[in-house]
Design a protein around this nucleic acid. Sequence first.
DNA 1: ATGCCGACAGGATGTCGA
Length: 261
Amino acid sequence: MKIATWNVNSIKARLENAVAWLKDAEPDVVAFQELKCTDDTFPRETFEELGYNCAVHGQKTYNGVAILSKRPLEDVTPRLPGGDGDDHARYIEAIVPGDKGIVRVASIYAPNGNPVGTDKFTYKLGWMERLHAHAKELLKLEEKLVLMGDYNVIPTADDCWDPKAWESDALFQTESRAALRKLEFLGLTDAFRACHAETHQYTFWDYQAGAWQKDHGIRIDHILLSPQAADCLVTSGTDKKVRARERPSDHVPVWCELDVD
DNA sequence: ATGCCGACAGGATGTCGA
């Protein structure tokens, strides 16, 4: 089962690119982030024609997450527990039935958190704490669990071109990196890192300042696997070539292959 | 030190992202 995550930066602006990528990559399950559309304006029919079922948690203008699957989607949960009054559409979870049992998947769009020292950074850390609490509960189920998406955290200095350029950014703060580590220390495996020892492998390149051409990227999109899912991990990668297309997202897809079919 | 680009809402230009 090929499982992928991609921050599309507007599904409407990215529809042509998204269809081309799906036809090429042929993932069985996809997590999208930053739809920037409501549930009723999500281009559901386009993806259904490609054979995908869609679970959508949208929002006007900002955020928005979805899960697409060629297999049925069951027990769809479009929220992260906790966070009174938090109306950001940043989390959706569902169960995908496989031939060797179920896989529970979540599409995650963690807050950016900039600028540091504001409510936005506090919100980022609080949201990560809520994700930690939820992941801890999910791990008790001892299922094949895939928590994937845009975590908006650069894990280490080797996951960006120039650490100095990011030292004052929310994505590279000690607290942000600690929050991601704390999540992984629950027993989650970074699928890409588990398959690739080489450093400076990125998932995001800014539109500005020729970041793509200069390979000034960061690795902030991650697939985290429970022990039961990690036991099935075959390989993982990124689809960098979509960044070179016309009207690209600033993120590229990250995927992993799990031996659960 | 900051903008650079791109999407959105709305109908000019400010907000947001990372």
